[in-house]
Computed example of a mutant assay.
Amino acid sequence: MPATRILGTAAALALSAMLLTACAGTPEPAPEVTGNAQTPTAAAPEPSATPEPEPASTDDPTCETIIGPSVVADFESLGWTSQASPLYIGSTEIQDGLQCMWADFEGPAGDHGQMFGWAPVTDADAVDLQEELEAQGWVREEDAAGVYITESADTAIATDADGYGMTYLFTPGQVEVADTKQGLLLIEWPKS
Rank of each mutant, 00 (worst) to 15 (best):
Q174H: 10
L129P: 09
E131W: 00
T159V: 14
E131R: 09
E151L: 02
D143M: 10
G110I: 08
D143G: 07
Q182D: 14
Q114L: 13
W118A: 12
T167Q: 08
Q182E: 15
D179I: 06
Q174S: 14
M166Q: 13
E132V: 08
I149R: 00
A126R: 03
I187P: 09
G113N: 04
A178F: 05
A144P: 04
A153H: 00
T180S: 08
Q136H: 10
K181V: 11
G110W: 01
S152G: 00
L129K: 13
G163A: 00
W138K: 08
Q182T: 11
M115A: 13
P108K: 11
A158C: 00
G137T: 10
E151V: 13
D162W: 01
I149N: 02
T171E: 12
D111P: 12
E142A: 15
G146P: 01
Y168F: 15
K191R: 12
D154A: 10
A135Y: 06
D154L: 03
G117E: 06
V175S: 08
G137N: 11
E134V: 15
E151C: 02
E176N: 11
T155N: 04
E131M: 05
S152P: 00
T180C: 03
G146W: 00
G146N: 00
K191G: 13
P190W: 09
D125Q: 12
A126G: 08
G137D: 13
A178P: 05
Y164I: 04
F116E: 11
Q174T: 07
Q130Y: 02
V121M: 05
E151T: 09
G117Q: 12
E176K: 08
E132D: 13
E151W: 02
V147C: 11
M115W: 04
A156H: 00
M166N: 07
L186C: 08
V127R: 03
D125A: 14
E142F: 10
E151A: 05
D123L: 02
W189N: 15
G183N: 07
W189I: 15
W138A: 11
Q174A: 14
T122C: 03
E134F: 13
Y148K: 04
I149M: 03
T180H: 06
V139W: 03
H112Y: 09
V147W: 05
L184A: 04
S192I: 10
A156I: 01
E141L: 07
D162V: 01
E134P: 09
E132K: 05
L184D: 01
T150Q: 03
W118K: 06
T180K: 06
L129D: 09
